[in-house]
């Protein structure tokens, strides 16, 4: 492993650096939990790492709440999310994804920017953010732009970022005003109970009003397709339904709709058959769990 390292202390410095590096091969390093492993395994020649972890920028490192959104800087770590009680309350799916990412040690340094920009089909935080229909704020030498996170991924390990750009912030839309109840969680299946890269993951965030009506919902699936996918048709299927009217049949139909978005591979962790089967079963279980609650309500 051999590389140059540049440690900009501010974005101003960063952009100067990027201009200088215009014709060089460079990559960003944030928490380094992905990139160092990658470089240890496959060293790259003449590489410069642009270190984002010394940049002093309040927004890049912070979590802030506005009237109808929550903004997370790309430099926010998994542990910052775990410690944030607001997120635990408003977006359980995101909190759980962060809490179940890797290990205590990794969570201290792993950033959401790194999780997203690695563009792994099994990125946990990313999956949660897709289910929340978040937006990525990208900055670059040529200015700022926004893109929905579900459009951010162009393939495994490929993102919409152009040279000279980086991920700056993520904006999560606020929950609906009349939401009184949330079904929001992150399910991650692997062969071991922890420290596990998912074989199948599902992130969901369902908002329900005081009359038990589903106001809106978001489902995202990980590790079952080349990129993380938002399962719009499945969401449409349950949006505006009353949870008391949901049936076992609906659970199956719903699961089928989720499955339409999957196109898994077979690898050493699991076969395509297994991934499809589990995705179906788990999708079904989400609606089944809601049905169980409806009995409780009665």
């Amino acid at each position: 492993m051999n590389f140059e390292l540049i440690n900009p202390q501010s974005f101003k410095e960063l952009f100067l650096v990027l201009k200088k590096l215009k014709h060089r091969k460079y990559r960003y390093a944030a928490g380094c939990t992905d990139i160092l492993i990658e470089l240890k395994r496959n060293p790259e020649d003449d590489l410069t790492l642009v270190n984002l972890s010394q940049i002093n920028d309040f927004k890049f490192r912070g979590i802030s709440q506005t009237k109808n959104s929550v903004r997370l800087g790309a430099g926010v770590t998994a542990n910052d999310i775990v410690r944030n009680l607001n997120i635990k309350l408003l977006y359980p799916v995101l909190w759980e994804a962060a809490y179940n990412l890797a290990s205590t040690q990794i969570r201290q340094v792993a950033t959401i920017g790194g999780n997203i920009c690695t563009a792994s089909p099994s990125g946990d935080i990313t999956c949660a953010l897709v289910s929340l229909d978040a937006t990525c704020v990208i900055i670059g030498v040529h200015g700022k732009r926004e893109i929905r996170i579900r459009d951010f991924f162009e393939g495994p390990r490929q993102t919409a970022l152009k040279k000279g750009e980086l991920l700056y912030e993520i904006i999560i839309p606020g929950n609906k005003k009349n939401t009184v109840k949330l079904f929001s969680s992150f399910i991650k299946i692997g062969t071991r109970r922890s420290m596990e890269c998912s074989v199948v993951s599902i992130a969901y965030h369902i908002q329900i009003d005081g009359f038990n009506k589903i106001l809106t919902s978001g489902f995202a699936i990980g590790a079952v397709a080349p990129t993380i996918r938002f399962t719009a048709k499945a969401c449409d299927f349950i949006n505006r339904k009353n949870i008391n009217a949901l049936t076992e049949r609906d659970a199956e139909s719903f699961a089928l709709k989720v499955s339409e978005y999957s196109d898994p591979i077979s690898d050493i962790r699991a076969t395509r058959w297994y991934r499809e089967k589990v995705l179906f079963n788990l999708s079904k279980s989400i609606i089944e769990d809601i049905i169980k609650c409806q009995i409780e309500v009665k």
Partner: peptide, 10 residues
């Protein structure tokens, strides 16, 4: 706690 094997000394 941090894994020192994945932490840049810089």
């Amino acid at each position: 706690p941090v894994n020192s094997c994945l932490y840049l000394a810089a």
